[in-house]
Design a protein around this nucleic acid. Structure first.
Lengths: 312, 312
DNA sequence: TCATCTTGATAAATTATTTTGATGCAAATA
DNA sequence: TATTTGCATCAAAATAATTTATCAAGATGA
């Protein structure tokens, strides 16, 4: 069994077609046929059922493919180790970002970064915190941006910035008239939050433990976007909290309903997180510097005294 | 990079000697030299510092070796998949057992098992519950025996038996005169327990929540063996609890101090646990049957009504 | 139904890689 | 200085991978 053979197997499994898979592997079709036959012979099992159209995996084949992916993935990390040693800033670099950070932060640094490090092939994906942790640990992500602290084993966190929350108070609410809000003022309101998995929620729940929402769960909202939350708040269903960077894009009408918190402001800690093995530490450092640079201007002036909750 | 090359690298890393490593790989020394050179050339780094005696790993070399182990380990699982498919009962089979189960259970089934399945190369190691979980997940163990329930993701549990606890009451204790003990009778005693990590401890703490030991922690004992606990109890430092199978080996003097619990007896659930992928399920089933057979005779007659605590 | 197309298997020739036995060379040992 | 130890090197031999050309089975479609 060779790593090459496993690559061939994966290609056929993906394309369900020997000829096409061969092209993708930059070899001729007989090469693929032969090598896969050799592997099947060595293992004395059949991986592909060639009688079906399109070609399908046998039951064992499925398992072999799953494991082959693991092996190939692990093998790929050898290159990462070497790149790290050489201080090479380039190659594939996969970053996970949680949904509530993605739309505001990404545009701020993306252009900057790809121009500064053109050799890096940046691959960004939106993931929940939970997905991020799994993928960091199994190597499907090189680093991620999420709300912290997570205190996960084998994962390191470098704080990028503290982002204060801003209250969004609809007009009919008794707190609307206040210029600034204390977190305890909201004790009697429904606080509309994002669905679980969007870790933003965890960030707030711990701050207002006396809130009705938590006590009796008058109603349970599982919205996926701040836009929905704002509309629901406008309907008089409660108040909501928005991370500062999100409030910058609101229209004037909505901005009028924003109220800053008095110090100490509730805030979320946003960090760059990555596996302890520090395989791509050079690229991670590059990313950190880029983000720090652009973010400083955007939120540094906000005098954030943190009530950073212990997440999850 | 080939899997063979990685094997060669690991062999040299282990033996610190090309000639010896070559022997272990059943190839000649030039083969090893060439292949490792080829790999070093491909990666454009040096793995081994040949100037030192004995040969040593470079800094990158260390990392490469660590990763090579992962790759080789993952590659080895392909064989497991195939074996599983073929229902083959044989090959290497690694079992972890927690310290408080090892000495009593192992002798009961070991002989039986290795005679019944001579093709299985059984490798037993003593591990804490925590180690077991890690090793099951990363494939360094095929299955394990531990106190349950653990409720760990990706790990399955099959209960082997329920083992009742027996109280060990020193003579000076007020409970000594009782023929049977109620768990609540011990509320005012120090209960001597094994150190953390030995999961036996978790099994008891939840049962007697009012115990002084927990309330004020008059003193904290971190003993590693039941023998020590028994001696400390004899010194008048408290009472201790022993799993039933352990009590069978005590001397007469000690046995006199044992008191059964009244129903419902506290008990620990002992299970065979293994990864959800069920890679070696046939061997695991074989092991389960063997253990069930021998254990039934030993503790089935104990009318165990379980207070099985939820473990950590 | 019959020609045609698609697609994987096979054969033979070619090319590339791996392994080996013989030997060299440097450093340690005695 | 002679000897041993241990890795590197080399060229020949053995093995293995790849390719080109071709085939055969099943699908497609006129």
């Amino acid at each position: 069994m060779t790593i090459t053979q496993l690559h061939y197997v994966l290609a056929v499994a993906e394309h369900k077609n020997f000829t096409l898979a061969a092209e993708k592997c930059f070899v001729t079709q007989p090469t693929l046929s032969m090598q896969i036959q050799k592997l099947e012979e060595e293992l004395d099992i059949i991986i592909f059922d060639r009688s079906k159209k399109p070609i399908s995996l046998t039951e064992v084949g499925e398992k072999i493919v799953t494991q082959a992916k693991n092996i190939v993935n692990e093998a790929g990390r050898i290159k990462d180790i070497v790149d790290q040693q050489k201080g090479y800033i380039g190659g594939e670099f996969k970053v996970g970002i949680i949904p509530t950070i993605m739309p505001t932060l990404l545009p701020m640094f993306l252009n900057n970064f790809i121009h500064k490090y053109p050799k890096v092939n940046l691959i960004i994906e939106e993931n929940t915190t939970e997905e991020i942790i799994t993928k960091l640990k199994n190597g499907h992500l090189d680093c991620a941006i999420a709300a912290t602290p997570l205190e996960e084993e084998n994962i390191k966190e470098i704080v990028l910035y503290y982002e204060p929350f801003v209250a969004y108070i609809p007009e009919n609410n008794i707190n609307y008239s206040k210029k600034e809000i204390d977190i305890n003022d909201l004790d009697n309101d429904n606080i509309l939050l994002l669905q679980d998995g969007h870790c933003f929620r965890n960030g707030i729940l711990n701050l207002c433990k006396n809130n009705k929402f938590l006590e009796d769960g008058g109603f349970h909202l599982e919205s996926g976007s701040f836009e929905t939350l704002i509309k629901l708040a406008d309907e008089g269903l409660g108040v909501t909290l928005l991370p500062y960077l999100h409030t910058l894009d609101l229209n004037e009408n909505n901005k009028a309903k924003l109220r800053n918190f008095v110090d100490p402001k509730p805030a979320r800690e946003v960090s760059l997180i990555y596996p302890k093995n520090e395989l791509k530490i050079h690229i991670i450092e590059a990313l950190r510097n880029t983000i720090s640079g652009v973010v400083r201007g955007a939120i540094a002036f906000q005098n954030v005294e943190i009530i950073s909750p212990k997440l999850k």
